[in-house]
Structure formats: structure tokens, C-alpha cells
Design a protein around this nucleic acid. Structure first.
Lengths: 240, 240
DNA sequence: TCAGTAAGTTTGACGAGTCAAACTTTGGGG
DNA sequence: CCCCAAAGTTTGACTCGTCAAACTTACTGA
């Protein structure tokens, strides 16, 4: 039987492994447990064939474990969609709710939700939803602070769970789907200067720019007044 | 912290106590645990002030415990409504789904659901929904096998969790809201003969008749042929 | 090369929740 | 009045998930 706890470990390994090696310390931090706890749990899960845990090495999912992890992730993200669209929760707040509900959702209810939502491919944060057969589309987006000056891009994902963070991002227009133009690319610790949609340019701090993912767009849409240099002195919408 | 397990114990005590004394054996049967397990858990809950557990006596809820029990019940029943109305599950099947989800529902989501549903007062089985302030309307309905011949009544509740049972009841028209006329009251082990809605009369077995609750109705709706065979003789059920 | 530190593991302990099996109490029928 | 079955309790054991603290390993940089 896969308990809630086990599901959380698998989910954590899956998500962390998209950003590098997954060590015990990293997992412990993510799950808010001690290293010792994680070591022993990870060893048990390895014995159960859900993940690989080479001694002193990086933890990784077995095909079985990955399957189950994507299953949880699918439930999580579908619930997020549902909470936003039908229950009317704000997208900045759904994560924690989904975290609780994801473990209590039967396949039957999940399928109905999925159908009701029209089989969405992304959750409200822009993260891709694994398919029912356990396939997860790999995103090829890039954090804002890796975009060059002049680049035009579309926001794909805002990768953070904290409502605080998400509200900040949302308040300056950084939400999935938004069009941005890089006025001044990231350098040093100073962040990026962006024009987001039709708003006046804003400076976005590193901590945010690293967590907001975008894809470049060649044809932004036809514009007549291409140059609108420094009209941005008022309107201090958001800083970070 | 009130765990899922604790919630289930409290809910069981609450529901069982509406049908008599709540002993350890009864609880154990309901929760599908051994008597020993229940004894020890019940003692712990008593220590925590959630219920009273006199040695060798009947278990009962303290005000605090009752409050929490009704809270769970409220979540359970609101979810049932929701699953039927929005998710499109059949009312005969929602119980088990609600059983899982009830523990994962935050107050915030619960309130949204409640509002979305228009603050329903009954769940799909006809059971009353406790209010947000912890008040539960006492039903004054009566099982079908206590109705006299000639009685006209409205089905209020179908008190069973099993989809099998509920489908059987539903298939002969016994669902909350249905109008029935007792053609022949229950006697011995032979059940009741009923006319349900406009259907042809059916005989309903004891096991079902005991679990389907109804309230008598004086004016069934205007009828022209007021006088009929066996009417005034056996009205021993009426409240007045 | 090697010391210091970060990462990982082990150990011993604990609470929750459970069972099986032995034991005790209660209450009703002969 | 006594006995016995049903109800309730106790005991000892187990798994899961967790922690703190001691310990080991691996890596980094001086």
C-alpha cells in the first residue's frame, strides 16, 4: 500500500530531480524532515523497488516509482485546475489545498474532473500535467534571468508554491501566458528590466527572475511604435 | 491534532449513538477493528476529553467531541452533495468517495462548496447536514415498516452506505422525496406492500423497510376519491 | 596532503495505530 | 443462585513515521 507519506517522498524526488542531483539533505529540506529520517525512509522505499538509493549517492526513481510519482503529480495539478476554475480559489493559493486533496482522490473522481476540465495540459502555475498513462511533457522554457536584452518571450510557468511569492509575481503581471520584452537583461545581482504586456517597464529581482520561466517568441505581434524608450519613470507597480 | 483515525472514531460514535447504546463491540464492528484496539483508542480519546468511556459502560461524546464529530459529518455530507451535483457521480456510490475526501477538506474549500450548492440542508441520501455552528436537525421520520396500512408518506432518507443496497432501493423507486402509499403494512417477516409514486404496487422486504425512513403526509395532493377501504382503523403511527 | 565541513548513516527512542490472545466483568437463563 | 456467553480489558508485539544525537564518509581548498 502506498501511503500519503510515500507519495510525498516520490513526488519530491520527481520534482527535485528535474533540477539536479537529489541528495538526502535536499530531500530532507523539501519534506521538512531530518536527514536521518529521510535516509531510513529512502532505504525502505529502495527495498520496495520504488527508488534507487546508492550509498552516499544520488537518489533516483525506478520506473515503478516514477509512475507513481507522476500519478500523484497528475492528481495534484488537476485538482489545482479544478480549484481555480470551479471552486473559485485564487491560483496563488491552490497549491496547499491540492497538497491535501491529492491523496484522497479516487481514479473515478479524478477522471471525472479531468473530463470536466477538458483534459487540461497545464495547471494554473503553468506546470505540465502528466497524462493518465504517465507521460510528462518536458518543458523547454528558460528562467527570465537567462533571456538577452531585446528578447521577446511568453511566460510559461511561475515555479514557486508560496502564495506570497506568487502574489508578488502576479501583481506585476508575471503570470502564465503573459508576453514580455526584455528591456535590459540580468546582470550581476540586479535582476531584469522587463515590459510585461502593455504595462510600463519594471525591474524584476533575481530571486523572482530565476523562478519565472519563459519561452522566446520571434513574432511578438505587429507593433507600430516600436521604440518607446524610457517612459517608465512613474508607475512603480512592482519591485522585488 | 485530530487525525483521520480520530475523526473516524468520533463520527462512528456520533452516528451509532442515534440508534442506542454505543459499546466497544459495536464500535469495533463499525470501524472494522478488534475490540482491544477500540478499547485502547477509546480510552485515549477519553483522556483527551473527546468522549466519555465509563468502564464496562456505554461510550458517549463530550461536547467537544460531538462538535468535532458533527464537523466531520458536515464535510462528509456536503461532499456527497457536491459529488452528485457537480461531478456527476451516482448517489448510490458517493459514500465511499466522501469517506476519503472528508478528511482532506479545508474550511475554506468547504465553505466554497457549501455556498456553491446553496447551503443544502440534506445530503443525497436524505440525511440532514449539520450547520457550520454544529447544530444537527433531529429527524422525526419513521422506518417504512412502522407505517400503517393506508398511510401516505414521503420518503425522507435511505439509511445505508452500501451501493448494492442503495441501487436495489432506487430501482424500485425508493429515493428521498418519493411519495408512497402503504397498501399493506408490515407484519411478521413479510415486509410492506407499497405504491411508490405512480408505479404498480411492490412488496418491499423487511431489511429494506427498516432502513428507509419516511414522514406521513395528510394531504398527499388533492385526490378526488377521498374515501377508501382501510383508512381510519389503524392510524396508530401518527404524531398527534 | 590533510583538516574541516557538508553530506550521509546509524542508533536508540518515541507516539500512533493496530492485532492476537489471554484474561475479567457483566448480565441473563436455567 | 450460579454459570456461561457476550462484552470489555489487558498484555505483548508489531509497523510506520518520526526525531536527536552520535558517528562515518566524501569533498574542497589551503
Amino acid at each position: 500500500m502506498v501511503t500519503e507519506t510515500v507519495e510525498n517522498y516520490l513526488k519530491a524526488v520527481e520534482t527535485l530531480s528535474r533540477q539536479g542531483e537529489v541528495g538526502v539533505a535536499r530531500l530532507a529540506q523539501e519534506l521538512r524532515l531530518t536527514k536521518g529520517t529521510v535516509t531510513s525512509m529512502v532505504q525502505r522505499l529502495a527495498r520496495r523497488g520504488l527508488l534507487r538509493a546508492p550509498r552516499y549517492g544520488s537518489v533516483s526513481l525506478t520506473p515503478l516509482g516514477r509512475r507513481k510519482a507522476l500519478d500523484v503529480l497528475r492528481r495534484h495539478r488537476i485538482i489545482e485546475c479544478f480549484l481555480v476554475r470551479y471552486i473559485g480559489l485564487d491560483w496563488t493559493e491552490v497549491h496547499v489545498e491540492a497538497e491535501r486533496l491529492e491523496h484522497a482522490l479516487s481514479p473515478r473522481v479524478l477522471n471525472r474532473l479531468d473530463a470536466l476540465l477538458g483534459h487540461p495540459s497545464r495547471d494554473p502555475h503553468g506546470d505540465p500535467i502528466p497524462t493518465a498513462r504517465g507521460h510528462l511533457r518536458v518543458a523547454k522554457d528558460v528562467p527570465l534571468d537567462r533571456l538577452a536584452t531585446g528578447a521577446r518571450a511568453r511566460i510559461e510557468r511561475v515555479m514557486h508554491q508560496s502564495p506570497r511569492f506568487l502574489r508578488t509575481a502576479a501583481s506585476c503581471g508575471l503570470l502564465p501566458g503573459a508576453a514580455v520584452v526584455v528591456m535590459q537583461s540580468a546582470s550581476g545581482a540586479s535582476g531584469v528590466q522587463l515590459r510585461i504586456g502593455r504595462r510600463a517597464p519594471v525591474r524584476v529581482g533575481r530571486s523572482i527572475a530565476q523562478r519565472v520561466m519563459a519561452v522566446e517568441v520571434e513574432q511578438p505581434r505587429l507593433r507600430r511604435r516600436a521604440s518607446r524608450a524610457a517612459r517608465a519613470t512613474d508607475r512603480k507597480v512592482g519591485v522585488a
